[in-house]
């Protein structure tokens, strides 16, 4: 009964989600504020920030009017350790990452939907993990979007 119940709930929940390959949102807040909102949302969702990577080194020399471009890496320490040990081929996609860049005085946030990896790994346990990550990423992005209003 218990199993049936959770299966049922899963169906109900997944009916309301979308499986676009990219998860993208626009925050009306400027880059710096959006970056703060993002880091806050990541930790509220139970993840640890592992690194903020600059992508914009030298970009302004090439004619970009902004150099505000970062990739934020995050994960749950035990989850990353456990998964990378059991699925080393997953490591190129770890930790989780969200790109954040300025567009004029607003900010765009972009992530690859983890679920798009399902077909490549074809593993039921990973499928569940990808689905969880998708949900968490959506929640994180939604918080930044709403926080920017």
């Amino acid at each position: 009964m218990r199993r049936f119940l959770s299966a049922l709930l899963l169906c109900v929940l997944s009916a309301g989600t979308y499986a676009e390959d990219m998860l993208m949102i626009r925050s009306r807040a400027a880059f710096e504020e959006s970056m703060l909102l993002l880091q806050q949302a990541i930790s509220e969702q139970g993840y640890a920030l592992s690194r903020v990577q600059r992508v914009d080194i030298g970009l302004s020399e090439f004619g970009y009017k902004t150099d505000k471009y970062r990739v934020v890496f995050f994960g749950k320490p035990e989850e990353i350790r456990d998964l990378s040990a059991r699925y080393p081929e997953l490591i190129p996609y770890l930790p989780l990452q969200i790109a954040i860049f300025a567009e004029a005085d607003e900010t765009l946030l972009v992530a690859a939907n983890p679920v798009q990896l399902s077909a490549a790994y074809a593993d039921p346990e990973l499928d569940k993990r990808f689905a969880q990550w998708e949900q968490d990423m959506r929640a994180i992005l939604e918080k930044v979007r709403k926080g920017g209003d």
């Binding site: 970009l59 471009y69 990739v71």
Partner: peptide, 12 residues
């Protein structure tokens, strides 16, 4: 990035 700024997600 000039083609599509989103590819920065996988760069450097």
């Amino acid at each position: 990035l000039a083609l599509d700024p989103r590819v920065g997600l996988f760069l450097p």
